[in-house]
Amino acid sequence: MEIPYIVETRADTGLNNVKLGIWLFLASEVMLFGALFSTYIILRVGAPEWPRGELSVIFGAANTIILISSSVTMVMAWASLKMHAWGKHRFYLLVTVGLALFFLVNKFFEYAEHVGKHEIPSYNTFFAIYYTLTGLHGLHIVGGIVVMLYFLGPGAKLAKKNPDQFTNRIEATGLYWHFVDLVWIFLFPVLYLL
């Protein structure tokens, strides 16, 4: 028995399961990061003093530029697929993976710099919340890379068998990736600038 509404939309909602499913997942993600942002506020408001300027703005700004660029290439990968430009789709998806890896390399050097100065999570409350927020965000980046590599590799076979279903999957991946970018847009000023 086939799962209904994978490609075709339901008459009552105008949506297919993929889109509704990814949005409900993203809603739960909003609450997950929301809980951590809320924790950050509690810790910051309750602290007698809060360190500022502990993190390198250059590292943070560079990673912001990288993630914004990856969001553009991701949306272009989806748009190319919609326009039946298979080669362009693969190119943009590959660039997105490259930018995501670049983000992680940047993050690695940033972590290494702090660990070298013994600024680990137990150093103070600021670094505890910094590693928690950026670590969880980094895991989301890794998750996105795994999914995109799958669609560049074995998952790409679906494009020949069922192009519409493949396009829907890329759209869902894109929505997830833009959400990861959106979270960083808030993490950057909160952790690096304020």
């Binding site: 991701m74 949306v75 833009h178 970018d181 847009i185 950057f188």
Partner: peptide
């Protein structure tokens, strides 16, 4: 940040 986030959500 809210302006940037809104642009990502609305367009991308």
């Amino acid at each position: 940040a809210i302006t940037k986030g809104s642009m990502v959500a609305a367009v991308f």
